[in-house]
């Protein structure tokens, strides 16, 4: 069992959680993820590390309540334990000094973008972060990003309630057009990564994306996480999660993410009936 040592609600549906998992914390790197099961009958769900401490023996992640498991998890409190935590999984984000980088975080993707931006800055890059959200309430980790040694932090919201009104692709386009970036890293919903990759490509800027296909084992054993990259089938869990955004078949990814929507809705509705936060 893995004890929850930290919990913070960041917005209506977004939570930050810390779990005691010393042997995972010892090895975690930016861009990697772990798989969790809440209880003995739980699904195996992946989350990316947002932070960790090898000395403290804990890992942190930020999750959005989207279905049954994340809903159930949002009710876990400090002192409770989850059944399983396994990792670190996936290949760490390739960190090197490439010059000027734009790190784009959309929605909860900001959580994953945070350690990536930190590692890139530590490696000597000039980092511009673009944070995007539907509205100000959904914007997360702004202060944390502000504390990093960034060149610039840009904020965009769909409704203009914070920062610039619009999508993350607008500042990306400006930066690329002005020739101010050598590389882009987009992390967020598939649709956002798709447009970021397309925008970057138009300006000949390489774009790394962090994919989140449905997974089961996370170790290369099942193939649930198949993604098409450059016409080849790759396993998201062991060949990724980072891939060359120019080459990813995002339509396929989005379609595959929807395979169980009906089942998932039914399961969450079933769970919500007995749940206090949904009277």
């Amino acid at each position: 069992m893995f004890e929850i040592v930290h919990k913070r609600q960041l917005s209506e549906a977004v939570f930050e959680m810390g779990v005691r998992a010393p042997r995972v914390a010892r090895k975690a790197r930016a861009g990697q993820f772990f798989i969790m099961r809440t209880t003995g009958h739980g699904e195996r769900v992946p989350f990316t590390f947002s932070d960790w401490s090898a000395e403290g023996g804990w890992i942190r992640f930020i999750f959005m309540r989207v279905g049954k498991t994340t809903h159930e998890l949002s009710h876990f409190e400090v002192g409770d334990s989850v059944a399983d935590v396994v990792g670190p999984l996936g290949i760490p984000t390739h960190v090197e000094d490439v010059g000027r980088i734009a790190v784009l975080g959309g929605g909860v993707g900001a959580a994953v973008a945070y350690p990536v931006a930190r590692a890139m800055a530590d490696a000597g890059n000039e980092v511009t972060v673009v944070l995007g959200a539907r509205n100000e309430d959904l914007l997360i980790l702004r202060e944390e990003f502000e504390a990093l040694p960034l060149k610039e932090l840009l904020v965009v919201t769909d409704d203009g309630s914070a920062g610039e009104k619009g999508l993350v692709t607008a500042p990306l386009k400006r930066l690329a057009e002005a020739g101010e970036i050598d590389h882009a890293m987009a992390i967020g919903p598939a649709i956002m990564m798709k447009f970021c990759a397309a925008t970057a490509r138009e300006h000949d800027v390489p774009c790394t994306v962090s994919l989140n296909p449905i997974m089961v084992d996370g170790t290369g054993m099942c193939g649930a996480c198949r993604v098409s990259v450059g016409g080849e089938t790759k396993f998201g869990c062991v060949d990724g999660p980072d891939f060359d955004g120019w080459e990813v078949d995002f339509e396929e990814l989005m379609s595959r993410q929807r395979v169980y929507v009906d089942d998932e809705r039914a399961a969450d509705a079933d769970y919500s009936r007995g749940c206090s936060c949904h009277q």
């Binding site: 009958h41 699904e43 195996r44 049954k68 089961v216 395979v259 089942d263 079933d270 769970y271």
Partner: peptide, 15 residues
């Protein structure tokens, strides 16, 4: 392993 035949009692679906 995940008991999908008992979904939604177990959390993992299968088509």
């Amino acid at each position: 392993l995940m008991g999908a035949y008992e979904f939604p009692k177990s959390d993992t679906p299968v088509a």
